[in-house]
Structures are given as structure tokens and as C-alpha cells.
């Protein structure tokens, strides 16, 4: 018998991984949570049947969503992370001793509980004393904050389901308000390739651009996400991620990373023409 996990990347495209066994399956108030074990990708987490992370390639996503803003402004002290129930983003953030406080806002406690049990590789730093976990709607949390954070990372699911509110104009506007004068907003920005993902990408970009003077998009190669070509948004009231990168300073921190380096940092902002055309449309 063969057991396969299949995700429908579009109505006409499927992505499958052969599964050794299923470790966890539950329906929370918000979504279906499943954790599988596979030979090729190690353990992996899906929400409502959509791939969130695998042990094998999660480092790419988490390196890029954390180290790009941190290298742009190494003086960041207060961070808000929205989503991130798997803990991977927190794991990378706590490597910076200069960060004083991390508020993690995850809507679904059941995701964190499941990941703590089955994905210690990413949840290993959730108990760091600078981390406070708030189980509530990110949109609600950010609404009541004013000039309080140097960095907001939106580590969300896709905009179809519980994560939908995190792709809205009201969310980005409230993030703008919650950031300090030199604040940075980084978000997972969907993929430029398949039509539905690309539409979400453009919409998010246009909405962010309405609020932030500096609004850039960067990319990474993530094998288990639709098309493998994934984007991140970088928006700031002050810092340009390429011009203001102090590569020497970041290297002096001595952080060992497997995907991120300061050349990739600069290079990741160079986008294919068809992506630029879509973003600027």
C-alpha cells in the first residue's frame, strides 16, 4: 500500500508527497491540522490540506522572512509576529540578542500544541523569555497598538480561510499605525506564478503600497510551495532593504544560516520581468 499526501496547487495541478505515516490529525475551531512523516521531506504540517512547512525546506522560508528585515535594521527591539504557530520564525528571531520583546499572535492554539509535540525542530524557541504568545485574531491585536513595534512579520496562511483578514487593507493600515517611525512590515506574499496566488500577491502589494513609502518585494525558492517560486513583501516607513543593508554589521553578528546571506539579501530583490509587470500593473 502506498499513502500519498496531495495538494491541489490549481484545479489542474497537483503536488504529491509519499507519506510514511500520519502523526497527527485534528479539526480545530478554525481549520484541519495534519502532520505527516515522509522520507523525502521529513515531517510536514498542513492546514486545511495546504502545505505549511516541511522539516526539509522550512529553513528557506524562515531565513528569508526574518534575516532580511533584521539585517536591514539590526537595531530592531520590539517585534510582532502574526501567525507563526509552527515556531520557525520565532526560532530565527530569538537568535538576535538585541531583540527585547516578541509578541506572537496566533489565532489557533491547537496549531501550536500540535507543533510542540511533533515539530520540535521549529517550536524549540517558543519558551524563550522574550516571547509572549497571544492566542487571538491578528487583526484584532494590531488594532489596539500604536507606534509600538519596530518590526511586524506576517507569517500567515493563504488569504483563503482563517488568514483572509491578514491580507486586507484594514490590516495593513492598522500595521502601519502599530509600527514606529522606522518600522518594517514583512509578509509572506504568495506566489507570482499560478493565477489565484498571483492575484492575491498583486492585491496585497497594492494595498501595502497605499500606506508605506517604501514597498518592495523579494523572492525565494521554496520547493514545497505552489510553483516553488515564493515572494515576500518588505514595506517600511524609512528603510530601503537594499540601500540600507549594512552587510558588514550583519556578518559581524556571526549567525550561521543555510539559505540567507547578504548577497542573497540583495539579489532576492531582483525580480523577473513578468513578476515586476504584474506588481506594477
Amino acid at each position: 500500500m502506498e499513502l500519498w499526501f496531495t495538494e491541489q496547487h490549481t484545479p489542474d495541478v497537483r503536488f504529491s508527497i509519499r507519506v510514511g505515516r500520519q502523526l497527527f490529525s485534528a479539526k480545530s475551531k478554525f481549520q484541519a491540522i495534519d502532520i505527516f512523516e515522509s522520507d523525502e521531506f521529513g515531517r510536514f504540517l498542513t492546514l486545511d490540506g495546504v502545505m505549511m512547512l516541511t522539516e526539509k525546506d522550512e529553513f528557506i522560508y524562515h531565513d528569508m522572512i526574518v534575516h532580511v528585515p533584521m539585517a536591514t535594521n539590526p537595531d530592531i527591539k520590539n517585534v510582532m509576529v502574526i501567525g507563526a504557530g509552527d515556531g520557525g520564525t520565532i526560532r530565527e528571531l530569538v537568535r538576535y540578542p538585541s531583540i527585547e520583546r516578541i509578541d506572537m499572535i496566533e489565532i489557533d492554539e491547537a496549531v501550536v500544541t500540535a507543533c510542540r509535540e511533533y515539530l520540535p525542530q521549529t517550536t524549540c524557541s517558543l519558551d524563550d523569555k522574550r516571547v509572549r504568545i497571544h492566542y487571538e485574531d491578528g487583526l484584532k491585536f494590531v488594532r489596539s497598538r500604536h507606534s509600538a513595534y519596530d518590526l511586524i512579520i506576517v507569517d500567515s496562511t493563504d488569504p483563503f480561510g482563517p488568514g483572509e483578514g491578514l491580507f486586507t487593507k484594514e490590516f495593513y493600515g492598522n500595521c502601519y499605525k502599530a509600527l514606529t517611525g522606522d518600522g518594517i512590515l514583512v509578509n509572506q506574499h504568495e506566489s507570482p506564478y499560478y493565477e489565484e496566488d498571483a492575484r492575491a500577491m498583486c492585491q496585497a502589494h497594492h494595498r501595502i503600497r497605499d500606506f508605506f513609502d517604501i514597498c518592495r518585494v523579494y523572492q525565494a525558492h521554496i520547493p514545497t510551495y505552489p510553483s516553488g517560486h515564493w515572494l515576500f513583501g518588505f514595506a517600511s516607513k524609512k528603510y530601503d532593504p537594499v540601500r540600507d543593508l549594512d552587510a558588514e554589521r550583519w556578518r559581524s553578528l556571526g549567525l550561521k544560516t543555510r539559505y540567507y546571506n547578504t548577497d542573497i539579501h540583495k539579489g532576492s530583490f531582483a525580480l523577473p520581468t513578468y513578476v515586476l509587470e504584474k506588481l506594477n500593473a
Binding site: L139, K140, P162, G165, K169, G173
Partner: peptide
């Protein structure tokens, strides 16, 4: 609940 948060947050933004 999520849609209610959207409405409240949007009203907050309209005011701001």
C-alpha cells in the same frame, strides 16, 4: 468572528 474583526478594524481605519 473574523469578519466582525474586519468590520471593526475597517471602521477604526476609516476614522484614522
Amino acid at each position: 468572528d473574523q469578519n466582525i474583526e474586519r468590520l471593526i478594524s475597517s471602521l477604526s481605519e476609516v476614522k484614522r
